[in-house]
């Protein structure tokens, strides 16, 4: 393709009223919102404390550190307009999680985050991990990051994962924000993030106005939200044999959308039932639903980078 030619890019034409907005990049305060929600969930509800409240509180601190790092992140190299055009032409993510050559500045982000964490009250194992990661060399950090971004969790330490992932999330959110929404087009695979090609952490069924009832998938890495039609498997895009599972006697705000064709599920958060919900936080806070879905033999169709599920992987 001749990149000199001025072709109108997605987003340059104003969407007519009634057209479904396809993409929404993470807001500048995405990690602040996440931290607040994690903290709120960690306190539990009127029935008592949350069963993993301590862990959610730790992650709330981590998300606060992410916000701080994002606010002070220096500019990092971005794909050239030619690279961007090439990616769009071939339906590839412009900032592919595995393909994009990471700038070392993400390790600076990690350092900022670890410093923030070191100053916070932590459990002994968490303190030890923070101290260890502070001393870990660049080559090893890059190796952890590569395995993590490849989704190769068997080789990723469950302790390291949330911290390293936190830094990578900040780095990707920043790059996506620098490029802006118009830089990204649709991918061939509707279930992968149009920005970085990652799997979603969860889906969000929106509420209010133009967006009422629309489902957006939320990227596990860069927190981008992209539209996907309801009642469709976010993994294999099948539209039949889709079932929804919820915890009995719950208000139905979180449902696992499962597909019998590819045997996966992904949680959907119905904002109509609870408008405070946030993808990463509420996904973790409903771990019981994952365990029960696991017992039915279903496999999760997306990662939560704040949670390594342990050694019993499929």
């Amino acid at each position: 393709m001749n990149t000199e030619t001025r072709v109108l890019e997605p987003g340059q034409i104003e969407a007519p009223a009634g057209q479904i907005p396809f993409l929404r990049l993470a807001r500048p305060d995405v990690f602040k919102q996440r931290a607040e929600r994690l903290l709120q969930l960690s306190l539990g509800d009127s029935q008592g404390g949350h069963s993993i409240g301590g862990y959610l509180a730790l992650l709330a601190t981590l998300a606060q550190a992410q916000q701080q790092a994002l606010d002070h992140f220096p500019a990092a190299p971005l794909p050239t307009p030619e690279q961007q055009a090439l990616c769009r032409e071939h339906g590839m993510p412009v900032l592919g999680a595995q393909a994009w050559p990471r700038d070392p500045s993400w390790r600076g982000v990690l350092k900022t985050i670890l410093q923030h964490m070191a100053a916070a009250p932590l459990t002994a194992p968490a303190s030890a991990v923070v101290a260890r990661l502070m001393q870990t060399g660049g080559t090893e950090l890059e190796s952890i990051a590569s395995k993590l971004l490849a989704g190769d969790l068997s080789d990723v330490d469950a302790q390291d994962m949330p911290f390293v992932a936190a830094a990578l999330q900040v780095y990707w959110v920043r790059m996506a924000a620098e490029l802006g929404e118009h830089a990204f087009g649709k991918l061939e695979q509707g279930g992968l993030c149009p920005v970085c090609g990652s799997h979603p952490v969860a889906g969000i069924v929106r509420v209010g106005g133009m967006e009422q009832g629309l489902r957006y998938l939320c990227c596990s890495l860069c927190a981008t939200e992209w539209h996907m039609v309801r009642i469709k498997c976010s993994n294999c895009e099948s539209t039949h044999k889709i079932n929804y599972y919820t915890l009995e006697n719950s208000n139905g705000a979180v449902k696992a959308e499962s597909c019998n064709d590819c045997n996966t599920y992904l949680k959907l958060l119905y904002l109509e039932k609870d408008s405070q919900m946030e993808a990463v936080a509420d996904d973790l806070a409903t771990l019981a639903l994952d365990v029960l879905m696991g017992e039915t033999g279903k496999v999760r169709g997306g990662l939560n980078l704040f949670f390594h599920p342990g050694s019993a992987q499929v």
Binding site: G54, G310, V314
Partner: peptide, 29 residues
């Protein structure tokens, strides 16, 4: 798309999950 991205969350795995490894007993969960 690598199948490695997909995993089951099992009760038996929680003991070696990020939750447990960072000092939070998964018993209550």
């Amino acid at each position: 798309v690598t199948r490695r991205q997909f995993f089951k969350i099992c009760a038996s795995g929680l003991g070696s999950s990020s939750l447990a490894m960072l000092g939070f007993a998964p018993g209550e969960a």
